[in-house]
């Protein structure tokens, strides 16, 4: 893989962590399967969406089994619902554990959010009211999850479009307390920091000053849609300059957490996505930033948390034949 980047990422100090510095990774997407199996691109690692593979008896799981032989895999979930007041789904956790063991996941992440209640799933990453009540509730659930998974859980700061009147704890303080109480780790999504702070009218500087960087093992980069009065986290384009600046400031403080690019809407060809994460080198090494590569213009409405990239193209693999 990319030795230079891996080395430069690994040089940063992060004493006491057993989490590897994996280099620059790309989110694994269905539309790239054929390219990856054919070209075996020089990418450092892949992040796979857990729910796409934990029940798969078809080609997606077979593809992941090929990929895991050549690249480090990290599992990233969207349905654990760690903040929900519904009971934890034990069957889900058991499948997640089996998958993580099977693909030798370097770690397993999900989001500080809830996705549903009353047995329903919104398939969105919904915001938590950040209170002492919520902290006690989430901490207890993180401990259960870590017992089942037999590894620390890694939690990501989500993009948010609302702030609760009743919240009493800031997101960085909440995450710090959660890590201190449970030993869980963090995935810092700098795009989400930018989106959340812009929408709330709060300062990214204040957020970053309070953030517990010592617990961060992975970072996310992504593009968003700026709608003037608010920003929607669409993951459908290149990373903007402001987010790269946040990345530059945060990456050093994390001691070299592994960066990963998410591109979920209007997903272009693999090399374009890979090129975008390689731009991180400039912000890691302090050399001049690489110009953004032209990207085709957007075709979709501003939808937060796009999930349709997870739906496979079943029609493409179907045919009709007479005997």
């Amino acid at each position: 893989m990319d030795g230079a980047v891996k080395q430069s990422v690994a040089q940063a100090e992060n004493p006491g962590s057993t989490f590897e510095r994996l280099g620059l990774g790309v989110g694994l997407r269905n539309s790239h399967f054929d390219h990856i199996l054919k070209a075996w691109p020089e990418v450092d690692w892949f992040e796979a969406i857990s729910e796409n593979f934990m029940d798969s008896g078809g080609r997606p799981r077979w593809v992941l089994d090929q990929i895991k032989e050549r690249y480090p895999i990290v599992l990233h979930g969207v349905s654990m619902s760690i903040g929900s007041t519904d009971p934890l789904d034990r069957a889900y956790l058991a499948k997640l554990k089996a998958l993580a063991d099977d693909v030798k996941a370097r770690w397993v992440s999900d989001h500080l959010c809830w996705t549903g209640i009353m047995g329903l799933n919104s398939h969105d990453l919904l915001p938590l009211m950040l209170t002492e009540e919520a902290l006690t509730h989430v901490a207890a659930r993180v401990r259960i999850v870590q017992d089942v998974l037999e590894r620390p859980l890694v939690l990501e700061n989500p993009s948010s479009y609302v702030q609760f009147q009743q919240s009493t704890i800031s997101e960085p303080d909440f995450l710090r307390a959660l890590c201190d109480q449970t030993g869980c780790k963090l995935l810092l999504d700098v795009n989400n920091v930018y989106v959340t702070c812009f929408n709330a009218g709060t300062s990214t500087d204040d957020y970053m000053k309070a953030f517990p960087f010592e617990h961060v093992v992975q970072m996310h980069l992504a593009g968003h849609q700026h709608c003037g009065t608010h920003i929607v986290d669409t993951h459908d384009g290149p990373v903007c300059d402001e987010v790269w600046q946040l990345f530059r400031a945060a990456w050093q403080k994390t001691g070299g957490a592994s960066p990963l690019l998410e591109w979920d809407g209007d997903v272009p060809e693999f090399d374009r996505v890979h090129a975008e994460v390689l731009r991180a080198r400039a912000y890691i090494d302090g050399i001049d930033p690489v110009e953004a590569v032209a990207t085709r213009s957007r075709t979709s409405a501003a939808t937060s948390t796009p999930v349709d990239f997870m739906v496979p193209n079943v029609m493409g693999d179907s045919r009709m034949q007479t005997l």
Partner: peptide, 26 residues
């Protein structure tokens, strides 16, 4: 009563981002 207003939009419009995206994505 539940949400603070956003930086440039009111609380109902903030919630509206979740409501609109919910139906569009599914």
């Amino acid at each position: 009563g539940t949400f603070k207003p956003g930086a440039h939009i009111d609380a109902a419009a903030c919630l509206g981002i979740y409501q609109r995206s919910y139906i569009l994505r599914l």
